[in-house]
Nucleic acid binder design. Sequence first.
DNA 1: AACAATTCGAACATCTCTGTTCAGGTTCCG
DNA 2: CGGAACCTGAACAGAGATGTTCGAATTGTT
Lengths: 196, 196
Amino acid sequence: MSSPTAERAKRADAQRNIAAILEAARDCLVEDPDVNVGEIAKRAGVGRVTLYGHFSSRAELVDAVFARTLEDSDHALEAVDLSGDPRAALDRLIASSWHIVDQFRSLLIAAQRSMPQERIRATHERPLRRISGLIARGRDEGSFRSDLSVEWMVALFHSVVHTAADEVNAGRLTDEDAPRVISATLQAAFAPTSHM
Amino acid sequence: MSSPTAERAKRADAQRNIAAILEAARDCLVEDPDVNVGEIAKRAGVGRVTLYGHFSSRAELVDAVFARTLEDSDHALEAVDLSGDPRAALDRLIASSWHIVDQFRSLLIAAQRSMPQERIRATHERPLRRISGLIARGRDEGSFRSDLSVEWMVALFHSVVHTAADEVNAGRLTDEDAPRVISATLQAAFAPTSHM
DNA sequence: AACAATTCGAACATCTCTGTTCAGGTTCCG
DNA sequence: CGGAACCTGAACAGAGATGTTCGAATTGTT
């Protein structure tokens, strides 16, 4: 039954350990982007050697955690209704994106230190497309300005949400205020220019 | 003549070397925030031991380079006329800040990896005050919106300029377009809300 | 029960970087 | 010119981290 190329299914305990390692790695990396492999193994309740048996290098582990997190995030974003008035949709997207970014800010830093830029970008592709799609539609319908490139507006979206996360982290902004502030900023930045 | 607390003046060759090290360190850190001490010494045309004779640790050297760069930047910003229409002043400030941030983006990363957050913030104090002052005045005069905190607007200023630098670095924005895009973004984000 | 897959810790090999020591040479400064 | 300050390269010590090897024990699968 097993095709020549298909690897034999892992044993149950191996699968459990892999899952535990991924979960522990995510937790550890969120706390400290420079956490070492030993710490991750310990938190996963597993020997360091076992970890290396499943992930041949630290970079590979970080990549796996990062990719999986982006997948999860994209799945969460799938539930957001992006139809209707683009401005309202933008607010909904902000509300949902905010917590995700805030939560995994440190994980992104870890990724930036061990993964090539293109790989990080590629991993972001699907969530990026959601934002990009909404912005493009908003422009077409005249709800958003057209004198700035979609790419820039996407970058701005990212940037503003991230900045809010940093400000919360620094104690200069509260958790509850963040979505409102982000929204007030982006809605103004995206609005069509009056004098055209 | 030398007071008890005053250190004896360094010898001329020592002063030259210190200057060479600072300059080399700035160049190296701009190219690679993780550059090692040996590389910096080599570029300064000096032995590693000599470097450690003047800076007792890598962190101290990074701090010195960073502080000096911020000083230089602040001095450059001093020439910018921040009086008159706040909107026009903002544009002038953007034009001047843009190149500085673009140039020393990598240096900031190096600082973030070896200096405590408060120290980085403290080093930014003077340039930060310029921005903050302009924004406050613009708000008072009704040129800028008042429904967002000055702190947030300052953070946004930083963030947008930085994002532009990243986008240029990634090839998604050209060097010449950057100031215009930054300005178009910030002016919109700072403008008073119409429906108040 | 038997076999293979998996795990374990401890030890090992390496690498890279930081920071120090030393002994001898060079440069400055009065 | 004489002494102190300074520089030098090489070598050393040490901290961490990654990744590997080993033999023995354990656990899943059939």
